[in-house]
């Protein structure tokens, strides 16, 4: 990723996605100002091709932007919207410049009803990408307007998720004919957000350990605390690498679903330990509403199950490994995950 773009996005989010803004939006859901600032920056169109007026970033480049959204706990679905707008553009549709999020798979077997539970950013989104399979078995990817949905709160304090339910496919639905593996991509974007949030959690926790004094010294001087922080750092670094890997396309430019599976499995597994170490080191202060740690750990807890938990994605990878005829894991892994990063399939 171009470091200038990265830095300018980082600065933008430092200015507009402050802890106060995050708290305000969590309290009353009014995102108008924030959206306006982001739209003016042009980043909503980052993944749209240059020909269609965007910056033309591939998923692999956009990874860094997703990471920063997580690092700043950005309280709007910009990362999902970037990708959704790109897919709309591929379909020749000019997507509305409004908050677009991606829904997890709707509840199975609800007939014509489209019942989407725990939609990330569902409270603030205007449009939602839904992969819907009708009772007839026909499958459609659609952009559905939230204004036509029944919207209910999840009851979780501060959460931006909502349950969204459409009685049937609304007339205003925008069908996306050229489709993509939405679940995989939403999963790897979420893994990238998680890696960003873990990076903030690491920085905050190391910072706190350097300041908080007990027994006459900063708690970070105690070896027991140091060892915990090292584990936290390892998991944050590994999750970031996993998320970056998950955003690598196949050599033909299509998303790599199994790499995405690696990303979400690894980040979701790490999140539990990251959250518990961060809270353990912060002790009582860390669980207060006033202290910023919770802005990140609440998100990590939510994100680790959004679009599939570690077990779901591990299972997907396990199925692929067991279905493959490769005699060694090495021979399975290289073409499956690393085809884009140098590995050549130049064997018989």
């Amino acid at each position: 990723m171009d470091p200038i773009l990265y830095d300018s996005f980082d600065r933008l989010l430092t200015d507009v996605s402050t802890p106060q803004v995050v708290r305000d939006i969590e309290a009353d859901g009014s995102t108008q100002d924030l959206w306006q600032q982001i739209i003016e920056s042009g980043f909503t169109d980052a993944m749209i091709s240059e020909k269609s007026g965007g910056a033309g970033l591939a998923l692999a480049d956009a990874f860094s932007l997703f990471f920063l959204c997580g690092r700043h706990a950005l309280p709007i679905p910009l990362a999902y919207a970037m990708f959704a707008k790109h897919v709309c553009a591929l379909n020749g549709i000019s997507a509305p410049d409004q908050a677009i999020t991606i829904s997890p798979l709707p509840v199975h077997g609800s007939g014509d009803i489209i019942d989407c539970r725990n939609v990330p950013f569902g409270k603030l989104a205007k449009w939602v990408v839904v992969s819907h399979t009708a009772p007839s078995g026909s499958h459609k990817d659609m952009l559905l307007p939230v204004s036509d949905a029944e919207c209910s709160d999840t009851g979780v304090v501060g959460s931006l998720q909502a349950h969204l339910c459409w009685k049937k496919v609304p007339a205003s639905a925008i069908v996306l004919k050229n489709t993509v593996p939405w679940l995989e991509i939403a999963a790897t974007i979420t893994a990238s957000l998680m890696a960003g949030a873990m990076d903030s959690v690491l920085n905050m926790t190391v910072g706190y350990a350097g300041e908080r004094v007990q027994f006459g010294r900063p708690i970070g001087k105690f070896q027991a605390v140091q060892q915990q922080l090292s584990v936290l750092a390892e998991l944050a670094v590994a999750s970031r690498m996993a998320a970056e890997l998950g955003c690598q396309e196949n050599p033909d430019g299509t998303p790599n679903g199994l790499a995405a599976a690696v990303a979400k499995a690894r980040a979701s597994e790490a999140a539990g330990t990251v959250v518990s170490i961060a809270h353990a080191v912060h002790a009582a202060m860390g669980v207060t509403a006033e202290y910023d740690l919770q802005l990140f750990t609440r998100r990590l807890i939510e994100w680790r199950t959004d679009f599939g938990s570690a077990g779901y994605w591990n299972r997907r990878v396990g199925d692929a490994v067991l279905a493959s005829a490769e005699p060694t894991t090495l021979e399975f892994m290289l073409p499956t995950f690393f085809a884009k990063s140098g590995y050549q399939q130049n064997f018989d």
Binding site: V237, A238, M241, A242, E244, L245, A259, A261, V262, A265, R266, E269, A310, G311, W313, N314, R315, R316, V317, G318, D319, A320, V321, L322, T329, F332, M333, F337, F338, S341
Partner: peptide
């Protein structure tokens, strides 16, 4: 068992990248 196999491979892939 399938989940376990996947768990090990997802970890290996990330370690290899690191």
């Amino acid at each position: 068992a399938r989940e376990l196999a996947g768990h090990i491979v997802t970890h290996l892939a990330v370690l290899r990248a690191m």
